[in-house]
Amino acid sequence: MTGPGAEGSERGLRPLGRLPPPEACPRREAWQMARSLSRRARQTVAGYLFLSPAILFYLVFLLFPVGLSVYISFTNWNMLAPLERARWVGFSNYTYLLTRDDMFIASLKNTLVYALGTVFIGMAIALGVALLINNVRGSALWRFLIFAPVVTPAIAVGRIWGGIYHPSQGYLNQLLRAVGLPPQQWLSSAELALPSIMATAIWAGVGATVIVFIAGLRNIPAQYYEAARIDGARPWHEFWHITLPMLRPTVLFLSVTGLISAWQVFDLVYSMALGGTEAGTTPARAVMVVALYLYTTAFRNLRAGRATAGAMILFFIIFGLTLILLRVLRRGGLEAYE
């Protein structure tokens, strides 16, 4: 036997593209129909049949919910009444959010500041730490210590830092007093609350970024540095002209994943400023973030339609930012030297 199916046949498999004789087929009509299809069409059908569980999964768990969310965003659904009783309101949820709702606008601004601040300041700090501990003795211990906050639940981090920021009993103000500086209202001041939460987020997340940077640093071939040193490069030149360009894929990865994650921040703000009975008097406009706004709108204010419209806006913002980052940072690393 020759042809593409021969090898399979020798292993005891049915040759690809061949059909059994009509008498072996349980239903003659089916066999004739199948035979009438070209080999390519049969392969295509078979391919889709194999893919069908995955396609079904995506239809049920991704496309359908997304489609439904888009629909809900154009209604006044409150989740208590059946969806079919919801009224179609056109773009009014979107126009209200973008033109009338100053809390949503404030939440967009705050989240943008939070995302840019935590991601880029966090990356700068993480890169510095990664360079410091990459090749030192006891690097594994340092990595462990720096990574520890990453595995601490955000609510616990919020509580711990809430104590550190406490106006009269917190360590931070005690430190300020010890050096003769005036104590601050870290979490209740409109000006300081968001930066204080951002600092906590950076502390809590920098460990993961350090680990990724260390992996990136270890992937840079040593010969680049050797060649540079032979040419008389100083450490700063090595960093600027070798390390940083070679880390561009790492920076891209961290920026994209970090920004997507930062735009969804909820737990830290909730636990440190706006959540429940032990929260203080932080002005909501100073710290409200989009995810918390959406939660409040959907589940407290019973406006699922408006919250879903906000989620759509959030999606397009994250999508746009990701595209920009991909455009700006997609080249780099080894391929830049090819």
Binding site: A190, T281, P283, A284, R285, T296, R300, N301, L302, R303
Partner: peptide
């Protein structure tokens, strides 16, 4: 109707006044 939303709006504005904003 929308009692929680109505009170939330007033809450946020009272706090703005407390802060002198």
């Amino acid at each position: 109707l929308q009692g929680a939303e109505i009170k939330t709006i007033l809450w946020h504005e009272i706090v703005e006044a407390w802060h002198g904003r």
